[in-house]
Design a protein around this nucleic acid. Sequence first.
DNA 1: AGATAACTTCCATAATGTGGAATATCTGAA
DNA 2: TTCAGATATTCCACATTATGGAAGTTATCT
Lengths: 255, 255
Amino acid sequence: MAERTAPGGVQSVERVFDLLELITDAGGQMMLSELATASGLPGPTIHRLLRTLAAKGYVRQLANRRYALGPRLVRLGEGASQQMGAMARGELTRLVDQLGETANIAVIDSDMVLYVAQVASRHSMRMFTEAGRRAHMHDTGVGKAILAQLRDETVRAIVARAGMPTPTSRSIGNVDDLIAELHVIRERGYAVDDGEQEIGVRCFAMAVPNAPTPTAISVSGPVSRVDDSFAERAVPLLREAAESISRNVNLVSGG
Amino acid sequence: MAERTAPGGVQSVERVFDLLELITDAGGQMMLSELATASGLPGPTIHRLLRTLAAKGYVRQLANRRYALGPRLVRLGEGASQQMGAMARGELTRLVDQLGETANIAVIDSDMVLYVAQVASRHSMRMFTEAGRRAHMHDTGVGKAILAQLRDETVRAIVARAGMPTPTSRSIGNVDDLIAELHVIRERGYAVDDGEQEIGVRCFAMAVPNAPTPTAISVSGPVSRVDDSFAERAVPLLREAAESISRNVNLVSGG
DNA sequence: AGATAACTTCCATAATGTGGAATATCTGAA
DNA sequence: TTCAGATATTCCACATTATGGAAGTTATCT
């Protein structure tokens, strides 16, 4: 019809993943009628698609007829996580060894950042950002590092869709301030999150150059440990790590 | 063609998930030609399917043209994992109320156990197994409960791939001892981990029957509290919980 | 460099997926 | 309990959609 069709895209495959994303957005389970209104697809079509997924275990139908994400997705997700992690884990571990703070790798995922892997520091006081967690872009180090690689108008579109909540008094609350901050990040080569997501937590982040999906890595910890002298040591190590990961992601890496 | 067609199944959807599973089995990345021989599908068909996935971020194409699992799968997997947890949380909470010790649910995930959800006891001294954590199978209660449901040769293959580290002096260190232990577990109906992962921690575990992915639940705590009289109370409650979760997880077709 | 293997694009074909209409099932009200 | 309204599922005629052989590209090996 009037809808734009992606070239070479297989319709039913696109639809089935749209449905899975909708269910995920809704917290893991949905009624068929809800999916119909959310997706705009006719009931029988959705039913047939979900039936196919259910037969393979990617979706489960509950007793109340609702459809829920199925256990087989866990394995695929874990595999994808390991895949990204395999390319980055060595470098993240090295960062943790060298700096003693928690290291993360995150990618952009529909207007937010998705934490793909984490190597935790051995300190008892540390962040709990689990792999698979999503966060806003404007108030995280990795998010700002990624945004700094995009064009300003793209950034505006992203925050318009995702919103700009201000979890702390230091969070950036409007687009123009964010754009200004991104200019600083581009000059400087790395992003800083100084208590923008949580007071007392500071984070240094850097984009992974030429990644297929915009990607960034970070080290973060309490301000008491993550100070100016930490930054001096961290920035060159972050750069090394980002470049090394870039090489891994783009070239072959047996793991 | 003369092939059997699944009733109501959407071909391209089935194929696309078969491909994702193949890539996962192969460790996260594969060449198109490898997929062609493994799946029996013609090259152009695979290419079109993967291109659709790649456009949405469920697969990434590396510089050497190999296809790897993409970052968007991470989020779906995480959602599915939480979903499993949601179905079990009520039962786990009841176990904690009844027994006063921490309850876990875990699934098998590429030769290891993946802790999907945990309800912690109120005791200050307790286990710290976080949801999302993976552990070996041979030295955990949930792992052994799951292995006891599999055929011996499958068990041998799993431990051959995953290895059998012995974190404590009580850990099982060779396959034959493990197989013997699994026979005991099958007879008895539940698994015990008595300090095999950490000295002083005891755990009772039971498989969730007929789960789509092999699954088990457990209660664990310090030996001082988790003794014989605890076992007497725990085992019937574990069985009830496992059966209840089984009913939740499997689609209740009879109403 | 040339040869070989692997990947990608093209396009005629019909098999495949589609969705409106009909039917079955569930949920809540009286 | 029975009934009405909402929701899910099955059916099936139709053409849109996916298919895969053949041809064209691009990488890798010798």
